[in-house]
């Protein structure tokens, strides 16, 4: 039963991954990417890694892809221009692809995965959120902190790149608005009432 479900999700994952790079409409491509994230999350859940599966949906589907869609909807992308020179760049692209596949196989290939690791993950008594937390904050604490610093630098850089100081724009200072008192804006004048003409 579990195997059938696995193959169904794996098939959906591969199909949607192929569709991401082959459909013409960029918004459709983004939606296929969402579908492939979902299938990957489902496969993780099947393996008992519920934290990773849900975190994938939360971070990539819930936040990253929403921003992607946002940008895609704002841009008018002409895919015909993007497709020009496909044949010219094919050898280079294929070479890079082969290098990446080899790299990934070396890191996460079958030789690297011990059967015991799978047994630990599949054990329902092991709370894998706790396990990941413990490993992350003890064994891998320095790489973890380093990654955090790199991300912080990226955040600041992104903000600096988009921060324009436009002259002539009127900005509201909320603090100033709150601090305003009545007599700064309002003047009460006493006027003698005019006599009505008869």
């Amino acid at each position: 039963m579990l195997q059938i479900i696995f193959y169904v999700f794996a098939a959906i994952l591969l199909f949607s991954a192929v569709m991401v790079i082959s459909v013409k409409n960029p918004v459709h491509a983004a939606m296929f990417l969402v579908l492939s994230f979902f299938s990957a999350a489902a496969i993780w859940l099947l393996g008992g890694a519920e934290f990773l599966g849900i975190a994938l949906v939360l971070v990539y589907v819930g936040a990253v892809m929403v921003l992607f869609l946002f940008v895609l909807m704002m841009l008018d992308i002409n895919t015909d221009i993007m497709r020009q020179g496909f044949a010219r760049y094919l050898p280079l692209g294929a070479a890079i692809g082969v290098v990446m596949v080899v790299q990934m196989l070396l890191v996460i290939g079958a030789a690297q995965i011990t059967p015991e690791a799978g047994a630990v993950v599949a054990d329902p008594d092991v709370n894998n959120i706790k396990m990941i937390g413990q490993v992350l904050y003890t064994v891998y604490v320095y790489p973890f902190e380093l990654a955090a610093v790199v991300l912080l630098v990226a955040i600041i850089a992104a903000i600096m790149l988009t921060l324009h100081k436009r002259p002539g724009t009127k900005r509201q200072d909320v603090g100033k608005q709150v601090r305003v008192r009545k007599d700064e804006r309002l003047k009460v004048i006493s006027m003698p009432a005019e006599k009505r003409e008869r």
């Binding site: 969402v34 949906v57 939360l58 589907v61 819930g62 936040a63 929403v66 869609l69």
Partner: peptide, 8 residues
Amino acid sequence: AMTSLGVY
């Protein structure tokens, strides 16, 4: 995760 999907 589920509440973040509603925006789609």
